[in-house]
C-alpha cells in the first residue's frame, strides 16, 4: 500500500509521507516538505489508495456472495446486471440529474448519484434473479441469457444517454464505463467506507447460511434457514456494495470473478474464509492494478477497467483450463 502511495507520475518519498501525515495530525515535525508533494499525498494519492482498497475488497466480496447465491462459480456483478444497472443509474444523474438537482443542497447532490446507482442496480439484479429462477432453482443457461439481455438493456439506455448528452458529460460516461480511480477524493472515500465496511460485516454474519445454501435451497431450508429472506438480504447488501463502489469509480470488471476463484482453489468454498479472504486479496489486487494503470503510460493514466479486464480475462481462462485438469470430469463448471 505504501508503495502504491509513492508510485505515480510524481513520486513521493517515505519521509515526505511521514511529515505530511504528522502535519495533518496537528504535529509540527522537523523538516520540510514541498507543498506540491504534500498536497499530492494528502488530497490525491492517499484517498485514491484508500478508495482502491475498499473497492477491491467490496467487489471481490460481492463476487463471492453472488457465486454463492446463484450456486455458480462463474457469476460476478458484471454478469448479472448489478454493475450495468448501477452504471445506468449513475449515467442518468450525469446527464439529466445535474441540472435537475442543481438547486438542492450539496449533501443531496453527493447522495443522489449513489442512490440512483443503487436503485437501478437493485432492479437489474432482482430482475435477473427472478427471471432466471423457477421453482426455487436457478438455471444457469437461463441466468446467463437473462443477464446478457438485462445488461444489453442497461447498456443501450446508458448509450442513449451518452448520445443525447453534451460532450463533457458524454466523455465522463465513457471514462466511467471503463472505471477509473482518478476522481478519488475524501468525499467518495468516506461514502464508500461508510457503506462497504458495515455491509461486509453484515455479510459475514450470513456466511454460515450461505454455506448451507451451497447444498441447494431445499437442503438449506431443512437446516433451518429461511432461504427467501436470506436471498433478499444478500442481494440488497451486495447491490449496496457494488452500486456505491460503482458510483464512485465506475465499472471495474473481472476482479469480483477472479479473486474468489483464486481463494477457492487454495482453500475451498467455506464462505467464512472466502469472504474475509476475498476482501483482503481483492484490496491488494486492486491496488496493484491501479498502480499499473498509473505507471504504464505515465504521465497519463489508463482507466483501471482496461487493466483489470486485459489481465483478468487471460488469468480467468488459465484458471478454467487448470480446473478442468484437476477434476477430470469438468463437473465443476458443467
Amino acid at each position: 500500500m505504501s508503495l502504491a502511495i509513492r508510485t505515480g507520475a510524481v513520486s513521493i518519498t517515505y519521509r515526505e509521507i511521514f511529515i505530511s501525515l504528522a502535519k495533518a495530525m496537528g504535529l509540527h515535525p522537523e523538516g520540510q516538505v514541498e507543498r506540491i508533494q504534500e498536497g499530492l499525498f494528502m488530497y490525491i494519492r492517499l484517498p485514491r489508495v484508500l478508495l482502491c482498497v475498499i473497492i477491491g475488497a467490496g467487489l471481490s466480496v460481492s463476487g463471492a456472495l453472488m457465486q454463492g447465491l446463484f450456486r455458480n462459480p462463474i457469476v460476478e456483478p458484471g454478469l448479472i446486471g448489478t454493475s450495468s444497472g448501477a452504471a445506468f443509474g449513475a449515467a442518468l444523474i450525469f446527464v439529466v440529474g445535474k441540472s435537475f438537482f442543481a438547486q438542492y443542497s450539496t449533501l443531496l447532490g453527493t447522495m443522489i448519484l449513489p442512490l440512483s446507482a443503487f436503485t437501478f442496480s437493485f432492479i437489474a439484479t432482482m430482475l435477473v434473479y427472478k427471471l432466471s429462477s423457477s421453482f426455487g432453482k436457478v438455471t444457469v443457461t437461463v441466468m446467463i441469457l437473462v443477464g446478457v439481455a438485462i445488461n444489453a438493456i442497461a447498456a443501450s439506455c446508458t448509450g442513449f444517454l451518452s448520445y443525447i448528452a453534451r460532450d463533457p458529460q458524454a466523455r465522463s460516461i465513457t471514462f466511467w464505463n471503463l472505471g477509473t480511480f482518478s476522481g478519488a477524493n475524501w468525499n467518495s472515500v468516506c461514502l464508500v467506507y461508510v457503506v462497504t465496511i458495515p455491509s461486509i460485516f453484515f455479510v459475514l454474519r450470513y456466511s454460515k447460511a450461505l454455506n448451507a445454501l451451497l447444498l441447494g435451497e431445499s437442503e438449506a431450508g431443512y437446516l433451518g434457514i429461511d432461504t427467501e429472506k436470506l436471498k433478499t438480504k444478500i442481494i440488497i447488501l451486495n447491490t449496496l456494495i457494488v452500486a456505491v463502489g460503482t458510483s464512485a469509480v465506475g465499472v471495474i470488471g473481472f476482479v469480483g470473478l477472479i479473486v474468489p476463484h483464486l481463494l477457492r482453489m487454495i482453500k475451498g468454498s467455506d464462505n467464512r474464509f472466502l469472504i474475509i479472504g476475498s476482501a483482503l486479496v481483492g484490496a491488494i489486487i486492486m491496488n496493484v492494478a491501479d498502480m499499473v494503470s498509473r505507471v504504464i503510460i505515465a504521465p497519463a493514466e489508463l482507466p483501471i477497467g482496461i487493466v483489470t479486464s486485459f489481465v483478468g480475462a487471460p488469468v480467468f481462462i488459465w484458471i478454467l483450463r487448470r480446473q478442468k485438469g484437476i477434476h477430470g470430469k469438468g463437473g465443476y463448471y458443467a
Partner: peptide
C-alpha cells in the same frame, strides 16, 4: 435427499458440520 446439488469445493468435514449449523 436423493442427491445434493453441491458443486463447490468444500472439505468433507465442513459439509458434515453443516448438519450442526442449526
Amino acid at each position: 435427499s436423493q442427491e445434493s446439488e453441491l458443486s463447490f469445493p468444500l472439505s468433507v468435514e465442513e459439509v458434515v458440520m453443516m448438519g450442526r449449523y442449526p
